[in-house]
Simulated assay, not measured.
Amino acid sequence: MKEKITGQSIQLFEKKGFSETSIQDIVDSLGVTKGTFYYYFSSKEELLMDIHLGYIDDLLVRQEEILHDQSKSFKEKIFDIVYMLISDIKTRGSAAKIFFREMQNLSADRRALIVPKRDQFRFNIEELIKGGMAVGEFRPNLNATILAFGILGITNWSYHWFNPDGISSDREVAEIFVEMILKGIQVY
């Protein structure tokens, strides 16, 4: 039931926004009582925190798997991370929108638990770029911090416009993005 509450809440938060969605809206949409909600969550904010943690923790685990794959080049790892983020839009796009849009509705204490995880995802991309620079896959004079922000800006904004059922597949969009990124940073 916890997963059902979370899933339904993500849909409602995406449609109406966190502030405009009440606990009553959530339980009514599931046909359960508030007691059921409070069995799993002490508050709507705790539910929002659970959504945030579930989203970022999953991304970090999958990013670490990509980063530790010794069989792939730095370029391939960048592609894998971009593709992971774009392909997630079909299954986790709503959770991503909640993550980016509703973080301000978390208390400062809860945000303090999320922001370092979000930053770690970016730092990992920075380190990947620096590693590629060190071995000569990427130009040595790049600003890895700005590039990491750029990669995340490109991919994260895609949650607003990319239609996984549209004319371009998630792989095609990832390939276009990575080609655009690498043409600017690979050694010629």
Rank of each mutant, 00 (worst) to 15 (best):
Glu20Asp: 12
Lys117Arg: 14
Ile146Arg: 10
Asp58Thr: 12
Gly132Val: 03
Ile167Met: 12
Ile26Glu: 00
Arg111Val: 06
Lys44Val: 00
Thr145Asp: 14
Asn156Ile: 10
Tyr83Arg: 09
Leu60Thr: 04
Val173Cys: 06
Ile185His: 07
Ile56Ser: 03
Glu76Gly: 09
Val178Tyr: 00
Leu85Cys: 07
Glu46Val: 07
Ile114Phe: 06
Arg122Leu: 13
Arg139Asn: 07
Leu152Glu: 08
Ile167Pro: 05
Pro164Gln: 02
Pro164Glu: 04
Ile146Cys: 08
Asp109Lys: 14
Phe41Pro: 05
Gly131Ser: 04
His52Asp: 05
Arg118Ile: 07
Asp109Ala: 14
Leu53Lys: 14
Arg118Gln: 15
Arg62Tyr: 12
Tyr40Met: 02
Lys2Leu: 09
Gln8Thr: 11
Thr36Arg: 00
Ser158Ala: 15
Phe121Pro: 07
Leu12Glu: 02
Val178Ser: 04
Arg92Met: 05
Thr36Phe: 02
Phe100Ala: 08
Asn141His: 12
Leu60Arg: 05
Ile66Glu: 07
Ala148Cys: 13
Glu102Arg: 03
Asn124His: 08
Lys16Ser: 13
Phe79Arg: 02
Leu12Ser: 02
Ser42Gly: 13
Phe121Val: 08
Leu12Met: 08
Asp25Ile: 07
Phe162Tyr: 10
Arg101Glu: 12
Gln120Lys: 15
Phe149Thr: 09
Gly136Asp: 06
Leu67His: 02
Ser71Tyr: 05
Tyr55Gly: 01
Arg101Trp: 08
Ile86Met: 04
Ile146Gln: 11
Ile89Met: 04
Trp157Arg: 08
Thr36Asn: 06
Ser107Pro: 08
Leu85Trp: 01
Tyr40Lys: 01
Phe123Glu: 15
Leu106Asn: 09
Ile176Leu: 12
Glu76Trp: 01
Ile81Leu: 14
Asn143Glu: 12
Lys97His: 05
Ile98Pro: 01
Ser42Thr: 13
Val27Ser: 03
Val178Asp: 03
Gly132Asn: 03
Phe37Cys: 05
Gly136Cys: 09
Ala134Gly: 10
Phe18Trp: 10
Glu76Ile: 01
Glu172Ile: 08
Ile26Thr: 04
Ser43His: 03
Ile66Val: 14
Trp157Glu: 15
Glu46Asp: 11
Glu45Trp: 04
Gly150Ala: 13
Glu14Phe: 06
Met84Pro: 05
Ile176Tyr: 12
Arg171Val: 14
Phe162Arg: 02
Val61Lys: 15
Ser158Pro: 04
Leu152Tyr: 10
Thr36Ser: 06
Gly132Thr: 02
His68Trp: 04
Arg92Gln: 08
Ile5Leu: 09
Arg110Asn: 15
Ile154Glu: 09
Pro164Cys: 02
Arg139Lys: 13
Lys4Cys: 01
